[in-house]
Amino acid sequence: MRCIKIKINRKEFEELFNKYKTDIYRLAYTYVNNQADALDIVQETAYQSYLSKNKLKDKSKFKSWILKIAANKSKDLLRKNKPILVGDISILENIEAEDKASLAIFLDNLKTLSLDEKNIIVLKIYFNYTFEMIADELGITVSTGKSRYYRALEKLKLEEESI
């Protein structure tokens, strides 16, 4: 292994972090299903990643590195706390009426997913993993990964996409 020396100062780090902040928040929200916890996870991810920024050996891996931290923080929080099942109506305030209804249903359905299903969605959507990579990461078969993914889509009442 060859270590590439990179140094990131606070300004550069903030720029990189801000580039992916919406992904981090939405990933966290996918797991915890409420705004307050998702924001806490963003904060914890900023703290943890900045503290260990020197462990990042390749800037091009910043996105996957930071999302991995956020995913771990989300799962940690789920382990510690019981899931909050009350919806955040306030987060839909600025959404147009037509979209508000379908998004509200989607967010409600998101809460019904198991952790296994959320893990697959996060890897598929945020990390752009293939089913083979997901199977490898989670130690499951490709067909299990696919069936969990499609079950999740069913729960979310979404159509199967071309994947």
């Binding site: 939405r26 996918t30 987060i91 600025n94 959404i95 979209d99 998004l103 989607f106 959507i125």
Partner: peptide, 11 residues
């Protein structure tokens, strides 16, 4: 679409 729906989660 799932990706679009997730991208619609308000930040």
């Amino acid at each position: 679409n799932l990706k679009d729906m997730l991208n619609n989660i308000p930040v």
